[in-house]
């Protein structure tokens, strides 16, 4: 019993528990950053939170956008995000991890994606957040279409800079 109590108090045990606090969602509805942040603050023993929020820009190549549409591969997207989080956990010592990605039609300034991680110290949290976004932009089956104010639509081309960002990991 004494050994069990020691294990339960140990950081290792809390890390085991932390595996269960991944929060992954692919959804049409908006998310509340304050609520996401408050969940991350509950991570046991961690001293750093880093979050990223992506929003819809109102301009693309100088043209004003009416909004964007995000298509995905429903049977695969959640699985790809789960693999992404598992890869991040194998590289960095993390407490809580949250990834929320929206799909469907979004207007300018709407929120697209939230990534948040906790760790004991800031460097792992910064690096893990960057890793998650860089690899998400290479490996998770989501595609943006930009809708212009004249009613025309155009699929966004993958950027070389994003490929390079993912390749550095």
């Amino acid at each position: 019993m004494r050994y069990l109590a020691m294990v339960m108090k140990s950081r290792f045990y809390h890390r085991l528990l932390a595996v269960n606090v991944d929060r992954i969602s692919v959804q049409t509805e908006d998310f509340d950053v304050a609520e996401c942040y408050s969940v991350l603050r509950e991570a046991e023993g961690d001293g750093a939170i880093v979050t990223f929020t992506g929003i819809v820009r109102e301009l693309a190549q100088e043209a004003r956008l009416a909004g964007i549409e995000l298509e995905h591969y429903p049977q695969m997207t959640h699985l790809a995000l789960e693999k992404l989080v598992a890869d991040a956990r194998s590289r960095f010592t993390l407490g809580a991890v949250t990834i929320i990605h929206r799909v469907g039609k979004l207007a300018a300034h709407e929120q697209i994606v939230f990534v948040g991680v906790t760790s004991r110290h800031r460097q792992a949290a910064f690096d893990a957040c960057q890793f998650l976004m860089d690899i998400l932009k290479r490996d998770v089956p989501l595609w943006k279409k930009e809708w212009h104010e004249d009613g025309s639509g155009q699929w966004v081309a993958a950027k070389d800079s994003d490929k390079k960002a993912a390749a550095k990991w």
Partner: peptide
Amino acid sequence: VAFLPPVTGG
């Protein structure tokens, strides 16, 4: 099997 264009999420 799925053929996917290079992805552009995020």
